[in-house]
Amino acid sequence: MRSRAPAPSEPAQGTEPDATRGPALVAGPEPPRPRGAGRGARRKGRASAWRWLGVLPFFAYTTLFLLVPTIELIVKSFEGPKGSFSTANVSRLFSGEYLSAYATSVELSAITAAAGGLFGLFIAYGAVHGRLPAFIRPLLSTFSGVAANFAGIPLAFAFIATLGPTGVVTSLLNRAGLHIYNHGFTIFGMAGLSLTYIYFQFPLMILIISPTLEGLRAEWREAAQNLGATPAQYWRHVGLPLILPGLLGSTVLLFGNAFSAYATPYALTAGYINLVPVQIGAILQGNVTVPNPQLGDALAFGMIVIIAVAVTLYVLLQRRAARWLP
């Protein structure tokens, strides 16, 4: 029944180019393909016009549903109440509650990217180089896929059930004599929100850092040991420099991941913690009075700028990483 066509180059496991390259969002340059020889120039010209027609639907679609919204919000960010050009909205971002919203968002994203990133790194390193049984790796990556995708509203509920005022872990700790809610902890505050974010941050780190760690060959460590290096020296001079670009790039990606989160903080803190996405949501829903509606556009524009910087860093670091490790 299967109409499988002859595939002359079905790759063997592990030889697929992408499999070892790691978490690159951007593929490297394609090696130039030899062009069909002996084609007439006229035919080539006509063919190239047809060629572009083939990608027209894709470009039309992304223009309409991605580019138009983006341009729209950027233009509106610089629009005054009467439609004229104005930098009032954007400059308002640098003061008062809006500035503090950015500060809180950046703080939360940085903390959870660092903590979740380190946690994920240790787990991934253990799984790759810790001599664990072979079945651990595929299991870990599937579980990480689930955990990293289990987010939003249900995740918030799961953490309220765990560390909320009547949560399972809270009652356990109470019985052990540790009343965390008397010591200023609440799941609806910064600490609780950070713990919740880490739930999807560390599995993401496991998934994106594993290929980099796989590139760290055991032979290099043995070679360093043979030359008399201590473990600390190996990490200082060999291991860390090798994985650093991949590590930083992945952390930056985790940062962007937390920064754009909306559903989880909205469900968990009901907007009490002043984060940029939640602010934008409140403006869109008309829950807060703002000087003019374009402020929401300006806030979103600020988010795009920050994430664009993060993603650009990620891409650059990833390219750097790809140079050293396979």
């Binding site: 919204p69 919000l73 754009s260 996405p277 934008i280 949501g281 556009d297 664009a308």
Partner: peptide, 14 residues
């Protein structure tokens, strides 16, 4: 990559 750069909440705004 662009859909990462423009988060969903920003897409709604635009």
């Amino acid at each position: 990559i662009l859909p990462f750069v423009v988060p969903p909440v920003a897409l709604v705004v635009g």
